[in-house]
């Protein structure tokens, strides 16, 4: 199984899964905190429409985890909206 890192912790995934699918497969359904209500969010629409699943990937903020294929060695940082 390949691995990428989520907030510094390694996470295994099957090649071909999106970042969101890998997170969900590992039992995580929430990884973002909303700006106003500080509420947890994760994958909702799963097809790139809702933007609930935003993460930072290799330093690039605002990436939809449900669209981006996981790659070995990728650095995923979960996003507090106030962190930018």
């Amino acid at each position: 199984m390949s691995r990428f890192s989520v907030d510094g912790e390694p996470l295994g995934f099957t090649e071909g899964q999106t970042v969101a699918a890998a997170l969900v497969a590992a039992g995580r359904v929430a990884w973002r905190t909303t700006r106003v209500g500080r509420r947890p969010r994760g994958v909702f629409c799963g097809i790139g429409v809702c933007f609930d699943c935003l993460v930072t990937i290799d330093g690039a903020v605002g990436q939809r985890a449900c669209l981006i294929p996981a790659r070995a060695g990728m650095t995923v940082t979960t996003q507090e909206d106030d962190d930018g």
Partner: peptide, 14 residues
């Protein structure tokens, strides 16, 4: 007189 406005993603105050 036409004008366009661009709107970014929400950010912390920058």
């Amino acid at each position: 007189r036409r004008g366009f406005v661009l709107v970014t993603e929400p950010l912390p105050p920058m």
